[in-house]
Structure formats: C-alpha cells, structure tokens
Simulated assay, not measured.
Amino acid sequence: MLYVYRFRLYPKKGQVEFLNRQIGHCRFVYNKLLEIAKESYEKEGKKWNYYEYKRLLPKLKEEFPFLKEANSQSLQEAVKWLDRAFKNFFKGLAKFPRFKRKKRVNSVSIPQHFRIEGDKIKIPKLKTPIKLKKHREIEGKIKSISITKLPSGKFYLNVLVDREIEPLPETDKVVAIDVGLKSFCTLSTGEKIENPRHLLKTEKRLKKLQRKLSRKIKGSNKYLKLQKNIAKLHEKITNQRNDFLHKLSKRIVGDNQVVIVEDLNVKGLLQNGNLSKHIADASWRKFITYLECKTKLYGRKLIKVNPFYPSSKLCWVCGYKNENLKLSDRRWVCPNCGTEHDRDYNATLNLLKEGLRTLKGSLTLRAVGLGRPELMSVESVSALVEAGSSSFQ
C-alpha cells in the first residue's frame, strides 16, 4: 500500500529562499492554468483537458522567464494537481478548483532526481543538501517526495513509499465504536474515551491573539508577527488532535481483528450551526480515515455501517425502536422490555450486531482471521453484549 512518512526540515536562510521560490513557481503555474481554463470555458465553452494544458508549459516559460528557475518536473506535477482537482470536481467529490493563496499551506512535488542520505536530502537545482529530522527509518520503495510549507513558516518533507502490509498476530476480538461529543467515542466493551476538545481548550488564547491582530496595521511588522503566532497556535491544535487520533486508532486496531463504525455523513452534520464547531474539533471523519488506513496496513477488517441505521434508537435486547428519543436523552428505558440503556453504549451494541450481520453476509468470519468464529455469530452476540453491559452498568 502507499504510505507517507513526514519529517521536519531545517533549511538555512538561502535554502528557505530557494524553497519559497520553487513553491511560488508551482503555485503560479497552478493559478495561471486555472485562470486560463476558467476563461476558456466562460468564453468558448471549452472543457478542461490535461494534455492540452500540459503543452502550455513551454509557452508559459517563454512568457514568464522566471519559471526557468524551477524544476521542470515540479511544474508538471502542478498541472497534475490541477487535473486531480478538476476530476474530483466532475465526480462530485469536491468544489470547483480554487486559486492557491500564498499564506496557506503550499507544496512543491519532486518525483525524481532526489537523494536522502542520513539526516540530509539533496533536491534538484539546489547545491547544498537540506537538514532533516529523520526520527524513524523509511520502509518500502520510495516513489516520490514533496516539500510542504505551513503558514507558520515551517517546512516538512513528505516521502511517498510503496510499503508492504504488515499483518499483526490474529485475534478473535471484535469492537464497535460510536463517536460522540460528550465522550469522543464509546466502545462496545463499555469503555468511554474522553473528548480532548483541543480547540476549545485553546480558544481563549486564540481569541485574544485575534483581537490584538485586528488592532494592528495590516502589513506592519507587528501584524505579521501576530499572524505567525496565530498560525503556530493553529498548528499546535492540529498536531495535538492528530497525535490523539493516531494513538487511539492504533490501539483499537492493534487490539481487535474487526472494527465496526458508523459511516457518518460529517459534511451534513456540520450544517448544524449549534454543534458544527464541536463536531469539527472532534474530527470524526479523520478518525475513521485513520482506522481505515491502519486496518489495511496491519491486516485487519473495517466495517462501515449505513449512517441511516438507527443505532441509538433501537433497544439491543428486543429490537424496539424509540421514535421519541431526543439528542438530549442520554439514558432511556425501553417501554417494551424495561431495559435501561446508556444511549452511546446501546448504540455500540446495535452497531456490533449490524456489523457482524454485514460481515456474515459478505464473507465468513474465519476469512478475516477470527480464530473462533463460533463465538462471533450473530445469534450469539446477545450473550457477548450481556456480559459487557453487566460490567458497564
């Protein structure tokens, strides 16, 4: 599978200027071709064609001589990025391509003629190698690299490798996960993971810096310094969130052969004005993505349950559907069988049932590596969840 290693770069002053120019050239080509493509469509109805716009690169170099300083392959990669953006738009996966801004995250891709030696990397058109913090060894065949500049001014090296799957020892454990806001997620074992709320913990300091920024003259030294401090704070929040999600997803995947989650429509949930900030801070979609990548890398199985499955409203004991259940109801009693439910834990048990039913319908449990499939049949789930529910309550 394709895997990306990320290392911090520590370029010197002259190297920083070189990287800024290389990134700027790629951004310029991307924006210029996007501008031409928009004008051609609006005036002539001409649609995007990758090969046609790729052939415009020599003309752009003649018209803008500074582009000759750039690595030619990096400029070609910029056209590929634009092509990918248009394809995602046509498939309905993204909005219409937007122009790249200098103050946001920017990258330059280098597909060939680079060399990583120890804690340094040599790239085309730069005589001196750039120092990097190689905190772990690179496993797999290196395919390409890219260098990313964050708004805080930091540079990172991204190494794309073709890495073999590393199956973990098989286990007969299965877990279902229900994500939430009060607790980040609840497991079908009864464990509740606390929501770290990284953004909300830093929000007070962030607002203070933004108020100071609003009082400064735009473009002044103090304005730029505050802007950089705000970018660093946002970067810290992102790093804290990613660290939490990586560690949690690794633990869950390492402990269980099959992981069952609800395939949430996070984009739709973000339309809720009252909860959108909290949902974005929780990063449920990124958590599911990390689970998906790690189950693939370590030879596990991830099952996504239909988001319209009413996991919270169903009683896992008798199957009664509580249509009157509100979001504020954290505990409820089933009118049919009298069982008292914790809303989130009940949802995980229903997800466990539904996930195993899906798994049983598509392939045998032994095919995904479960050592004792007879314990994981749909008929015996009640026996399993009863033991879990009694210890939870």
Rank of each mutant, 00 (worst) to 15 (best):
K103F: 05
P111F: 07
Q112E: 10
H113T: 12
F114L: 05
F99M: 01
K122E: 04
N106G: 00
K80R: 11
F99T: 01
E117R: 15
F114H: 06
R98F: 07
F90L: 06
F89G: 02
L82C: 08
R101P: 05
H113R: 12
P124Y: 02
K122F: 12
F96G: 10
R101Q: 10
K103Q: 08
E117K: 15
K91P: 03
F114Q: 03
L93D: 11
R115Q: 13
P97T: 09
R98G: 15
F96K: 11
R101T: 07
F99S: 07
P124E: 02
F96V: 12
F99K: 15
K122C: 03
G92L: 09
G118F: 10
V105G: 04
D83W: 06
K122N: 01
K95L: 13
I123Y: 00
Q112K: 13
V108F: 01
D119E: 14
F89T: 06
F96H: 10
V108P: 00
G92D: 03
Q112G: 06
L93C: 00
K91H: 12
S107L: 06
F89Y: 15
F96Y: 14
K120A: 09
I116P: 00
E117G: 08
N106S: 09
A94R: 14
A94Y: 06
A94V: 09
G92W: 08
F114T: 07
R101I: 12
R98L: 13
K100I: 08
A85T: 11
K91L: 15
N88I: 04
K100E: 07
F90R: 01
F86W: 02
I123H: 09
K80L: 00
F99R: 06
P124Q: 01
